[in-house]
Each structure stands twice: as C-alpha cells, then as structure tokens.
Design a protein around this nucleic acid. Structure first.
Lengths: 158, 158
DNA sequence: ACATTTAGTCAGTCTTCCTGACGGTCAGAG
DNA sequence: CTCTGACCGTCAGGAAGACTGACTAAATGT
C-alpha cells in the first residue's frame, strides 16, 4: 500500500529517539506487505492494495455502496470503481436491496469469502511469529496498548 | 487450512478480537491525519502525503536522488517527480556533487528545515496527548514493544 | 581503449483517488 | 396524491503518484 505514506514524518535516522510515527509505521507496513505477498501466493493475484478497503468493511450479509464508502473514508465514486473491479473478477456481486429499490447490496461471493479467510490466516500467522519471538505476554500487552490508543481517537470521531 | 478460528467474518466490528493489523492501523492513521492537518495549519499547505518519502529519508548534508529512491522504495523517476515539485516550491534545492559530475545532491532549504521541525513538533504533541491520557509508563511500554516488533523484520530485510 | 555500470531524465501508461452533474427512488408535508 | 428535498448509485472528466522502457552523460574496471 504505497498510499500509506504518512505526511512528512521526518528523520528516522537523525533523531536520538524514533518518534511514535516511525515506530508505528514499521510494524504496520510489515502487516501490509505480508498480506499482499501472501494473498498473491495463494492465488488471489488480481487484487491490489486498495481493495482491502472493501473487504475490511463489508458485512456478512452485504453492505451498501454508500456505507462502504463512508467507513473506508473515500467517496462513493471511488468505492464504486473498486466494487466494479471486484465484481468483474468474481469477488463480490451486486444484489438488489429488497427494502430500498434505490440501493444495491454488495455481497461477497464464495471466492470473496476465500480471500477473507486467507487474509485473516496470514495475519494470524504473522501474529504467531511475533508471539514466538517476543512471548505471548508482551504481544498481549501490545494488543492492549494499541487498543487503548486507538480508543482515544475513535471516540472523538463524529 | 485457515479454519483456525472458523470466525472469518470481515469487518472490524464483527470479530471477537480485532487482529493486529486492525489494531495497528488506527493509531498509525491518526498520526498521519494529525501531521497532515497540522502542517497545513502551519502554512505548509502545498505538501502532499507522498512528499513524506523525501523528508523522511533525506540526510542533513543532502542526498542523491538514487539513494532517496532506494530508501523510499520507489523508482528514481517517481522520486524525481517529487523532488521537482519540492524544488519548485522552495523546500529543497539541487546542488552539483563535487565528487561525481553525474550526480546532484538534494539539500533541504531553510523552508524545508522548517517543515521538518514542524512535523516533529506535531508528532511530539500527539505523543504527549497519549501520555496524558494513558500515563507515561504505558506509552513507554508501547514504544518499547513497537521497537521490538519493528526490529524483527528490520533485520530480515536484505 | 573499450565495455560495463551508474546518475538522472524523457516519454508514456496505469491505478486510484477526486469533483461535479445527473436519473431514479424514498419519505414527509400539504 | 403530488410536491419537495434527501438519498443511492452512476457517468464524465481530471489529477496525483506510482510504474516501465529507452535514453544521455559520466564514471569505473579490465
């Protein structure tokens, strides 16, 4: 995900102490790299980083385009573009929404579900690697701290 | 295979436990958002996220285009594009390299240094916010854990 | 001296986002 | 029942930022 670029966080090498931005970036981008590589290896080689925005936010019984766009923080047009691609490649399908004829529900196909399972498996494997290296308690601590920090800003958002 | 959890529902909300990828993404993107917003407010409103790649890797006495491209993991053409823009907007300047007439050194101007200081200040302020909310020891712990996890993969890279 | 490598640019393309405008649909008010 | 405004999704056009391939000029190694 080349678009993960933080805006102008300077100085990984110059500072006495790397700042939190730099510290967070390393592990985060490692996750991105591993998922991307692992999916390609598992046969899902027609997916690009941007498509994670869809898989990450779609609900089990299907979601509306507008909802997906909101959650992924992109415009509905951009989301439409991503969904078009995924539909052509058999990962999702559009179904009419029974309760609202304006809307369509974006649903995962069997192939789409396979991709989700694969991605979660890859992340679980990576977490296991980290656990093997640092020990279960420290990873547990890391999870907790990240959740706490994430919670600070999640509540601020509208 | 990935029947580990059998859970495999997509979406951050549906899993019993968010995976590490999701946990890392929140705080990381918060840093990105804050730096971006803060720089714009500080008058550096002609910068885009991609320019991070330059400021992050440039050395105090200037760097070569090729070196910057290598460190940022993009092609030298793409880096050239970014440097052109920053040069036009007064953040960097190209100087001939005394020891190699093929090369030019990309150096930060005074404005470029100002941007670097501003970005570091914004990150420091955010870290202080987190410290106020969670307490110094926990943030210290977080730094340490992130550094450890980052160290795992930094050594793997060729 | 000549072949190879290296620094940087030029040209063209592709992906992924954006804004603006539009047609179909829903829902509440008169 | 119809009007009006809000909402769902698509179409059209454009820009940013990355890519590949081909090139010039300079340095380096044999």
């Amino acid at each position: 995900m080349s678009s993960t670029g933080a805006r102008v966080l300077p100085g990984s090498a110059r500072d006495e102490r790397p700042n939190v931005g730099v510290l967070l970036r390393g592990p985060f981008q490692e996750v991105v790299r591993r998922v991307s590589a692992g999916l390609a290896e598992a046969g899902f080689d027609d997916l690009r980083p941007a498509h994670t925005a869809v898989f990450q936010h779609i609900e089990a019984d299907g979601s509306r385009l507008t909802d997906l766009a909101d959650r992924a923080q992109i415009t509905k047009q951009s989301m439409g573009y991503l969904v078009d691609y995924l539909e052509q490649h058999g990962y999702v399908e559009r179904r009419p929404d029974a309760s609202d004829r304006r809307a369509t529900r974006i649903c995962l196909t069997e192939r789409g579900w396979g991709q989700v399972r694969a991605a979660l498996g890859i992340i679980a494997a990576l977490e296991q690697e980290w656990t093997d290296a640092l020990g279960q308690p420290r990873i547990e601590q890391l999870r907790e701290l990240l959740a706490d920090v994430g919670g600070l800003t999640a509540s601020e958002q509208s």
